[in-house]
């Protein structure tokens, strides 16, 4: 109880506080960088609805369940939903943002390698949530 000296506990608490401060500062710095959308990013409108994704490029072309982008370019997604909440996710590129009806949420990425990646919905949205999946194709620039 209060009889004995308590310095080990104070040191321990100080260490925990220092660790948390460090985690917080690093996270703040990283998030600040990640949120900075490059000025030349091309916009893609990603629409979630039960239970598939639709993508609309700047030139008006639309894709359903598939998304083709070019390596080395930056893309900004404007994520919307027409019915219930979904969450737009390309796990390999840590792209994640909720699709919420009535809101436009943005997230961006810049694929750095040619390849195929999974697109999925990460927010529960009902019956076929488990299969609200798609594929991202990162290709060589055509021009």
């Amino acid at each position: 109880m209060s009889g004995h000296s308590n310095w080990p506990e104070w040191i321990y608490v100080a260490v925990v506080i220092a660790l948390m401060t460090w985690v917080g500062a690093e996270a703040w710095e990283a998030e600040r960088l990640v949120e900075h959308v490059p000025a030349d990013a091309k916009t893609i409108i990603a629409t979630g609805q039960q239970w598939f994704w639709t993508f609309e490029h700047e030139d008006g072309t639309k894709e359903i369940g598939e998304l083709h982008v070019e390596v080395g370019k930056a893309y900004k997604f404007e994520v919307v939903s027409t019915d219930v909440n979904h969450s737009f996710n390309i796990h390999d590129y840590v792209v994640l943002i909720d699709a919420i009806p009535g809101r436009v949420n943005t997230v961006w990425f810049a694929p750095d390698k040619v390849g195929e990646h999974d697109i999925q919905c990460r927010e529960y949205c009902g019956l076929i949530h488990y299969n609200m999946r798609g594929t991202l194709y990162v290709t060589e620039p055509t021009s």
């Binding site: 985690v23 917080g24 996270a27 990283a30 998030e31 990640v34 796990h91 994640l96 990460r122 927010e123």
Partner: peptide, 16 residues
């Protein structure tokens, strides 16, 4: 929990 709290890391873990 600390990993979830650090905002950029949560985009990897959230709802997985």
């Amino acid at each position: 929990g600390v990993v979830n709290s650090a905002m950029p890391l949560d985009f990897t873990t959230h709802d997985t």
